[in-house]
Amino acid sequence: MLPLRWILCLSALGFALPSQAQDGKLLYEQNCAACHLPDQMVVGPSLIEITKLYQKKPKEFLQWANKPQKKRPGVIDMPSMAHLGDANLLAIRDYMIKASAGLKEKPAVTKDPFERVARRPEVQRIFMPDVGPAAIAVALPGDLSYCFDAGDCRLRTIWRGDFINGWLYWKSNGKATGVIMGKVLWHLPEDTTLPAAKFHGYELNDAGIPTFSYERQGAQFEETIEPAGKNLVRRFKVTTAQPLVLTIDNDTQASAGTRQGNKLTLTPEQAKSFTLTVTLS
């Protein structure tokens, strides 16, 4: 019952079989162009560079495309193109060589196009060095910045100078931390003995300075960190039924409580409002 002309049409369709080489340009646009531009390194090297490497080496080109290696630092892994088949890959190679002929390499973008100075105060969450992965970087008015770790709910790092440069992180997919653009004056290492804390977030005051809320061993903390001359002051409001015991370092002075060595004990009443001042050089 099928009309005859229909059957005839089937053979005229010209769907390329997978083993046949297809149009190299189209295949390049479909499979490679997202990462390889003719004349500029973007995600992967330019066609000019690929041509230089593989103009006389079709076999090696196939090796690469079927099983790409890790070669250049700071770039993503190229996905395997084995599904295209060798004939198609060679057609792409021919096209890549043709398309790059006579072009001149443009410089890759090496500087953050969105670079700016910190709006002080400013809060930026990003991976940071030498702390846990849930870091919060804060630039304070003046020249101090700090990193609060929302994982262990502790102030971890203080530095003087500029804020951070996040370009290495932002230009890629998260395989880098922000870079501290100043001199680190104070840092706490990881403390695996610390009881777990629960982070509740932060609220910005009218000036844009955050107050962190968190909870540890039933005590509800609110902590605001501000500059105090060349030092840094941590203002606490803690709601607790039990006496509050904090471990503080030698550079830190408390406004209330009893100190024994590095242990500071505050009554629930004292804990309602107190400060810790970190003396900085």
Binding site: G132, A134, A150, G151, N173, G201, Y202
Partner: peptide, 23 residues
């Protein structure tokens, strides 16, 4: 505050792990 800008960044849930791996 009605200024058109968020002032409260309240953590609703962070009870999952982060290894720091980019992915």
């Amino acid at each position: 505050t009605g200024k058109g800008k968020a002032n409260v960044y309240r953590t609703l849930w962070d009870g999952f792990g982060m290894s720091g791996n980019y992915h």
